[in-house]
Structures are given as C-alpha cells and as structure tokens.
Design a binder for these strands. Structure first.
Lengths: 214, 214
DNA sequence: GTCTATATGGTGATAGAC
DNA sequence: GTCTATCACCATATAGAC
C-alpha cells in the first residue's frame, strides 16, 4: 500500500514558516510555543502565519507531516534492498539516525506529536488529523519492525518481545533529537561516527552480531 | 560528598499535592498543566496549593526533587555492592527500570525538568533551583557512568565514547516512562520480566556479555 | 488551611486597512 | 499577502473572608 506522498510541493513561504515553527516547537514545546514567537523569528507578524494556516494546531500538524515525509524519503531506497535483513537494517538505522541529526527540529516536533497522542493530549478537533499523522509514523515504524523480525528469523538478531524491542530500538535511534548539539566546524565524518555509535548500541540491544557493523 | 537527602519529612497534605501534580505534569506537560487542574484532581481549589507552594514552578521543582530522592533510595544499597562492576550494574539498572515503572508520574516530571533545562526553557528565576535539581540528576547519572566505565576497564563491557554510551543507556532505561501502560491485574513478575527485557537491551547496547544477565 | 473573588498578563484567533 | 488593531479566553497569582 502506497504512502500518500505529497502531491503539493512546498512553496518557499510555507517552508520558511515551517522551519521557524519547527525550531520554536523544539525549543519551547507545543503548548509554550506561541504564534507570535514563530512570527517574530521570521521577522513578521502572525498575520502572515494565519494567512497560511488556520490554527496553531494545523501549523504543527504540517511540521509533523513534513518531518515524516523527510523520514520516508531517507529510507525509501534502503528498505527495498535485497538480501539478508541485518545489513538492510544497518543501512536503514544509520540513515534514520543521520536524519534525526540533520533535521532535528522537525524530528523533535514529530516526537512531541507522538507523545501528545500517546498521553491523549489531543483535542477532539485535532484527533482526525493526528490519527493520520500517527498512521504515517506507525507505518514508518513497521518498516523497521518487519526488518528486525526478519533478522531474528534469520538468526542474526536475538530478542524476546518484538514490540518492546522495536520501542527500545527507536528510543535509541531517536535519542539524538534530545542530546545532539551541533558543534562549530563539525564535519560530516564526525556526524557519521556519532551515528555509528548509536547504531552499534541499538544493534547490540537487539542482540545482533557486532561484527556485522562495518 | 553527601547528597543532601531530605531532612524534612513529607507530611501527608504535601504528598497528596505532589502526587496529583506529578500526574498532571505527566499527562499535560509543564506548560499545559494548570494549577486549577491539579487542585480539581484533589477535589480542592487552588487556594490549597498556593498555601503550600508559592508558584507553579516551585511545585514542579518539588515533584522533581522527590522523584530524584526516590531514585537515590532505590539504588543506594546496590551501588555499594562489592565485586566486579557488571553484576553491580545489572542490579542498579534493574532497580532503576522498576523505579521508572512504579513511580512513573514523578519520573516523567523529572524528564520534563531535564528536558526544559537542556533546551534552555527555564526562566531566570527558575535557574537556581533547576541548577540544584540538575546537579542531583547528574550525580545520580554519574553512579551509572562510573559503573559502566569500570565494567569497560574490567573487560565486561565494550563501547566507544563514555558520555554517549551513558546517554544511550539512560534513554533505554528511562523509556518505560513513555510507553509503559499499567495493565489491570498485572503481576510483579510481569513487571520484572519487562524490566529484564529493558536491561538486556541496554546491556547489549553497552557491549556487555549477555550471559551475565540472569 | 482552604475557599471565593479578582487583578493581571499573555495567547489564539479574527476583522479590516493597506 | 501582510500588517495593525482588537476580542475573548484562560491561567498564574493575590487578597481577604471564613
């Protein structure tokens, strides 16, 4: 079943707003982030934002959606790789972690959205839109879930409960959205080393063969 | 260097307020949780809360503090265990995870506080109190950090960067505060099985010898 | 100690000028 | 499309009755 990939391209004004909004949501959280603040960080007033989005909730939902779309794009070619599950998982996991680092603000918003959903903090009006977004997130998660299940079947991973393993794996792979801090002059190689350590940790947690990480 | 353990006992009225507050902070987050809501969940009005706490911020700080004190108590006997680091770590980690599950509301508040600190969301007035609390949290974290460092020295764990390993370890061990849901009629054995899976994942992530988990 | 007002400030959202 | 009011609402915090 095909993921509804965006038909509508991101025009620049919308993208500007989304980036500013993602940053504010990351720095303040959903409730504490104000539309005024998003506008101010754009050097504008909220009239501009309300022209594009009918409500704060809709703005947030769009940040969430775009964040998920970025994720799907990042692993799309990898999840179709032929052959054994373990190396495929390694590629996917690595791409995922790098994505968490490089699009951190959006990914943090995704986390906030998932967390709001889990604790039932969504209002009745938000619920429909959120169901959609959570559906995207679930489907994305299932790609990994199916991959580690296959790896376990193939004997290259060892864990007990699949759901718990998947939860713990994502907590690990997502964690840079909380503690990563961009350093001045940081090279791509340093980011990849960081990602490598995160993937290695997750692989070990999943009972994978350490020699498989190159 | 002694951790300042509480001299002042928790009288019942304060404990009631703290429990209600912890629950609200968990369900709504710091910004969205209202004093009115905490009061309502106590069957009271906010006059009662403001009699005990001068501000929402102080109330939250007390929840944070009590949560951390619970943690110190949970691992206090274990961190002094003699012998090799690996089994000591297993005991500490296991106790920590069970603590996350059984005092979930308080631990979630602790997380919220740490996160607010990390993203600089604290106001100047909050800063001093938060520095204290974050200090507690850091010292608690150091107990684990020293233990895994020792385990690595002893050859029973294998990882690259100590800080990153400690971060990833805590993300794993803390994660039940997000996804754990109490089930009706759940037994202690089921909780311990759950905790065992979390600890096993973390141990694997730290490059520990799987046979060491009993 | 706890309650019932109430002051105060901030935020989401709207209306209408430009 | 964006800005400048402005409204309505809600939440923190306080004052004073009981």
């Amino acid at each position: 079943m095909a993921i509804s990939v965006r038909e509508n391209a991101l025009d620049n004004s919308r993208l500007d707003i989304l980036q500013a909004a993602a940053k504010c949501f990351m720095e303040r959280g959903y409730a504490a982030a104000s539309i005024d603040e998003v506008a101010r960080s754009l050097g504008a007033t909220k009239g501009r934002i309300y022209h594009h989005y009918p409500s704060k909730s809709d703005l947030f939902a769009d940040v969430f959606r775009v964040g998920m779309e970025m994720n799907f794009e990042a692993i799309e070619p990898l999840r179709r790789l032929e052959g054994p599950a373990l190396p495929r998982w390694c590629e996917m996991a690595r791409a995922h972690v790098i994505q968490m680092i490089t699009t951190r603000a959006f990914q943090r918003a995704v986390w906030i959205g998932v967390e709001m959903h889990l604790r039932g903090a969504t209002t009745p009006e938000q619920r429909d839109v959120f169901e959609d977004l959570i559906g995207l997130r679930t489907q994305y998660g299932n790609y990994f879930r199916e991959t580690i299940a296959a790896a376990r079947d193939e004997g290259s991973m060892r864990f007990d409960d699949l759901s718990i393993a998947n939860q713990l794996m994502f907590m690990t792979l997502n964690s840079p959205i909380f503690w990563y801090r961009q350093r001045i002059g940081e090279t791509r190689a340093e980011i990849e080393d960081l990602a490598g350590q995160v993937v290695t940790f997750a692989l070990g947690g999943l009972g994978g063969n350490q020699e498989a990480t190159r």
